[in-house]
Design a protein around this nucleic acid. Sequence first.
DNA 1: CAGTATCCTAGGGGATACTG
DNA 2: CAGTATCCCCTAGGATACTG
Lengths: 120, 120
Amino acid sequence: MAEDPEYLCPVDVPLHHLGGKWKLIVCFYLLQRPCRNGELRRLIPQVRQKMLTQQLRELEASGLVQREVFDQVPPKVVYSIVDKERAALEAVVYPLCEWGIDRVGRHGGRILTTTLPTDF
Amino acid sequence: MAEDPEYLCPVDVPLHHLGGKWKLIVCFYLLQRPCRNGELRRLIPQVRQKMLTQQLRELEASGLVQREVFDQVPPKVVYSIVDKERAALEAVVYPLCEWGIDRVGRHGGRILTTTLPTDF
DNA sequence: CAGTATCCTAGGGGATACTG
DNA sequence: CAGTATCCCCTAGGATACTG
């Protein structure tokens, strides 16, 4: 995540910005709608708070996710996809989703969550 | 890489099969044309032989890459994308490439290799 | 040429506890 | 609620050497 890094080839770029263990999953959910910290934790039960925070910060540093703090008690923080990056991000995440769905169809496996519950 | 794994969400699937440090990069080059072991090593100078072999084996296990051995001296081994998976793989790798190229255009950075030299 | 076989370490990431 | 702060483990992956 250096200033002006050199990438070996084009796919190297997304690898640097989305390569974390949880980043794509977080983006998958945030693309559906903005989420609070606790929502993301419930959507991704296996992730630890530390990791979630870290990955969110890195996505923020990449300019893909924005963090909005509401100054109130109890605290409220909402994460969302940066508007300007949404289209580009969708163009990369959706094909990944389709590949995933297509693949389990042809090779087996089970996908637990495809869409995000609206009232989560 | 279990038999019939459970995936949290659709992007989780590509994460499991393409999530290695070098897999996407290897696929990027193999999508252009079949390559020998040594070619891949020269194309990806940072990768260690051990890692290259390991990632290739995992791609093979995922049914994405096939390994052809020519029984001759000196040995010749050619890796290539499995025909049936090519279209699906392209549908996911190309958008990643475009995102990469688009992103360095808008945010800075330098991509060293975009296309593979034909006579490599 | 195309790999194994060892050895080893950095840091990614888990668990638990605490705070504004 | 939304996080830090520690501690610690483990394994992905690096370095080096050897082989059919």
